[in-house]
Amino acid sequence: MSRVIFDSDDVGQMRVEGSSKHRDSRALITISSPSGQRSVVVTPTDIYEAKSKDYVQAPPERITPKNQATKKRIAITFSFIGYFMIAVLGSFVVLSAAGLMQARVVLTGSMSPTINSGDIVILNPSNSVVVKKDDIVTYTGRRFDGTAVGSFTHRIVGGNTESGFILKGDGNINPDTQRVKRTDVVGKVVFVLPYIGQFLTPKSLFTLIPFIFILWLVIDRIKND
């Protein structure tokens, strides 16, 4: 007895011949090609489509179908991004705890286009760095009575340590009113992370957390498939 088990353009026609003396016998036949993988279970009376992973574990040397290779690349990419972010965040936590680095979210566009609202600036603390003209620094802004009002990140355009620094935002027409003392300089900007600060607002986090959860489910499904 001869029966057709596969008949397609990419693999051609494949047939199975013979019969079995055992009514409950089963044979799993799997064929892989660049277009994908197909498996059938052959019984004495029937042939039906199946998934080979439900019956056996595929050997590593078998050709990986195209769709599974794509899923694998996607999973590896997301894993790499995840490990990279963990490494960056872990390094930042360690450096911050050691007092070697600080981070601030920029809230205005006064330094545009160099630094925009929503960017995160990475600071080298002022006690470990020399600041000079053209450096971008974060300083503590004060009222005339000396009361602190907030932090500002602007560029040094003049002045010195003795008389105080003159600072100005790249996007502002006029320099800042305050003459900034060296003790008010929080740190020097050494790196800018664009846009990330926009995701740190309560509204953005409310949207981002469900998105991360859904993304995790998708990655988990890809791994299972």
Rank of each mutant, 00 (worst) to 15 (best):
I5A: 04
I5T: 05
F6T: 06
K21T: 07
S25C: 03
I29L: 15
T30H: 09
P34N: 09
P34I: 08
S35C: 13
V40E: 00
V41W: 03
T43N: 06
E49P: 14
E49K: 10
K51Y: 12
K51H: 12
P60G: 02
T64V: 15
N67L: 15
Q68V: 11
F84K: 13
I86M: 15
G90Y: 09
V94T: 15
Q102F: 07
R104S: 11
L107A: 13
T108W: 00
G109A: 12
S110H: 08
M111D: 03
M111E: 05
N116H: 10
I122D: 01
P125A: 11
K132C: 02
K132Y: 05
K133C: 07
D134K: 10
T138F: 00
Y139T: 03
T147D: 10
A148W: 03
T153G: 04
R155P: 03
G158V: 09
G158Y: 09
N160I: 09
F165D: 05
L167S: 08
K168N: 04
D170N: 15
N174W: 09
N174S: 13
P175D: 01
Q178Y: 06
V180R: 00
K181F: 05
V186M: 14
L193N: 06
T201Y: 10
P202Y: 05
S204I: 09
F206C: 07
F206Q: 12
L208I: 13
F213A: 14
L215P: 03
I219F: 06
D225T: 06
